[in-house]
Simulated assay, not measured.
Amino acid sequence: MTPAKVKYRIPLEELADEKGITYVFDRGYVDYNAYDQFCEDKIFFVT
């Protein structure tokens, strides 16, 4: 977790890398290509 004031963006692939886990993302991390890959890799998420 980072404070809201942080101005950098961590790639989603660095945050979500375990299959079978459900991740929760802030809307600031919207990356549809990454979400598509998560679905293919059976990585679950809520945003």
Rank of each mutant, 00 (worst) to 15 (best):
1 M>E: 06
1 M>T: 02
2 T>M: 09
3 P>S: 08
3 P>G: 04
4 A>Y: 01
4 A>F: 01
5 K>F: 05
5 K>M: 02
5 K>E: 12
5 K>Y: 10
5 K>R: 04
6 V>G: 00
6 V>S: 03
6 V>L: 05
7 K>M: 01
7 K>E: 08
7 K>A: 05
7 K>T: 07
7 K>R: 06
7 K>N: 07
7 K>F: 00
8 Y>W: 10
8 Y>S: 08
8 Y>L: 07
8 Y>E: 08
8 Y>D: 02
9 R>S: 05
9 R>Q: 05
9 R>P: 00
9 R>H: 04
9 R>G: 00
10 I>N: 01
10 I>R: 07
10 I>C: 07
10 I>Y: 04
11 P>F: 06
11 P>E: 07
11 P>G: 02
11 P>R: 09
11 P>S: 11
12 L>Y: 01
13 E>D: 02
14 E>G: 00
14 E>N: 04
14 E>A: 01
15 L>R: 13
15 L>S: 09
15 L>C: 09
15 L>T: 07
15 L>M: 14
16 A>S: 11
16 A>P: 06
17 D>W: 10
17 D>F: 13
17 D>A: 05
17 D>T: 02
18 E>I: 00
18 E>Q: 11
18 E>M: 03
18 E>S: 06
19 K>V: 06
19 K>Q: 14
19 K>I: 02
20 G>Q: 06
20 G>D: 01
21 I>Q: 08
21 I>K: 14
21 I>Y: 07
22 T>K: 06
22 T>R: 10
23 Y>L: 08
23 Y>T: 02
23 Y>K: 04
24 V>N: 02
24 V>I: 05
24 V>E: 00
25 F>C: 07
26 D>A: 10
26 D>K: 09
27 R>L: 01
27 R>P: 05
27 R>G: 08
28 G>D: 14
28 G>N: 14
29 Y>C: 13
29 Y>R: 13
30 V>H: 15
30 V>L: 15
31 D>I: 06
31 D>F: 04
31 D>L: 06
32 Y>M: 07
33 N>H: 13
33 N>Q: 09
34 A>K: 13
34 A>E: 14
35 Y>G: 00
36 D>W: 10
36 D>C: 05
36 D>A: 10
36 D>F: 11
36 D>P: 00
36 D>L: 12
37 Q>G: 01
37 Q>S: 10
37 Q>I: 06
38 F>M: 15
39 C>G: 03
39 C>R: 13
39 C>Y: 09
39 C>T: 08
39 C>H: 08
39 C>Q: 12
39 C>M: 11
40 E>F: 07
40 E>L: 11
40 E>S: 09
40 E>Y: 09
41 D>T: 02
41 D>E: 15
41 D>Y: 04
42 K>D: 15
42 K>F: 11
43 I>S: 08
43 I>Q: 12
43 I>D: 02
44 F>E: 14
44 F>H: 13
44 F>R: 14
45 F>W: 15
46 V>T: 10
46 V>D: 15
47 T>Q: 14
47 T>N: 15
